[in-house]
Computed example of a mutant assay.
Amino acid sequence: MRNLLYRLYERSLENSLTLEDLPRHIGVILDGNRRWAERKPGTTTAHGHAAGAAKVIEFLGWCQDIGVNVATLYLLSTDNLTKRGSTELGELMDVIGTLSGDLAASESFKLQLVGDRESLPKELLKKLEDAEKASKKATGLHVNLAVGYGGRKEIADAMRLILKKHAKAGTSVEALADLLTPELITEHLYTVGQPDPDLVIRTSGEQRLSGFLLWQSANSEFYFEEALWPDFRRVDFLRAIRAFERRHRRFGA
């Protein structure tokens, strides 16, 4: 009976959505894998990250079901690279490498690595770039894999690219100051050419961005979910979409 009621509620949520008001780009901060593992006796952190990877595949299917165009997954931050223990970090990178290969092999997603490539170990970088190349011709959901990603680092990298480009062209500092606009910076971000995220979801009850898409999320709607990432259900996803549709977006006005 409980499963039947759940399915009926899920269907009711889905039927309540308005197609023209759906988000085109969803960003998600996949938080809670470690805590999920800690709450299950005999479960290791590695199992928690593996469960999180399995949830990613489910989540992307839900995005496809409702017609989302772009999904950005915050898988590994620049802080994670320096602050996580070496054992856990190695396990997490193994999971990410395997996940990227599985997503590419499905031929359902066009993958793009967004992050500081120079900060990543060569083995992981190769797996991610191989997956990126293998999925280049895919026409389905565009999936950004935010690995070695930090919002401040992305903005600094964009500014560095602009400075190098104009220094090479002989542009003076004064002239560059006149040319510098938000649009110019946007053109040099990792996500150039993509729509900004309409909706950013964070699981595990935490209510902060942790450096995720700082520039791009200026006008995003945020949804904070109590469930840990491996426990995130389709009904939770649909609630987030419903909440998004009910908000009156002002875009800073």
Rank of each mutant, 00 (worst) to 15 (best):
F109T: 13
G32D: 12
F232G: 02
G61C: 00
G48P: 06
S108L: 15
G211Q: 04
K83C: 08
I162D: 07
I96W: 03
I66W: 00
V173N: 06
N69I: 09
D157M: 12
T18G: 00
P41I: 01
L214P: 12
H188S: 11
E221T: 10
G140Y: 08
T44F: 08
E226R: 12
G67S: 07
E225F: 03
Y74C: 12
H166I: 01
D196Y: 05
K126W: 04
K164S: 14
A158K: 03
R34P: 03
G140A: 07
E221F: 04
L13W: 04
Y149V: 04
A146Q: 12
D21K: 15
A46L: 11
A50T: 08
L22E: 03
E245R: 15
S16P: 08
L228H: 06
V173W: 03
R246P: 02
G101L: 00
S100M: 06
R239W: 08
N219H: 15
S220H: 08
L125G: 01
G211S: 10
K133N: 13
N3H: 05
H47F: 08
S220I: 09
E20A: 10
G48V: 10
F232W: 02
T191E: 00
S220G: 05
Y223G: 00
D178M: 09
T72K: 04
I57D: 05
R7A: 06
R202V: 15
L176C: 02
R152C: 07
D236W: 13
V192K: 14
E132Y: 10
C63M: 05
E206V: 13
G42Y: 04
T139Y: 00
V192M: 05
K40G: 02
H248M: 07
E187A: 15
L103C: 07
R24L: 12
R208Y: 11
A138T: 05
A138P: 00
T181Y: 06
S16Q: 10
A71E: 01
I96T: 04
A240G: 11
V147W: 04
G90A: 10
C63S: 10
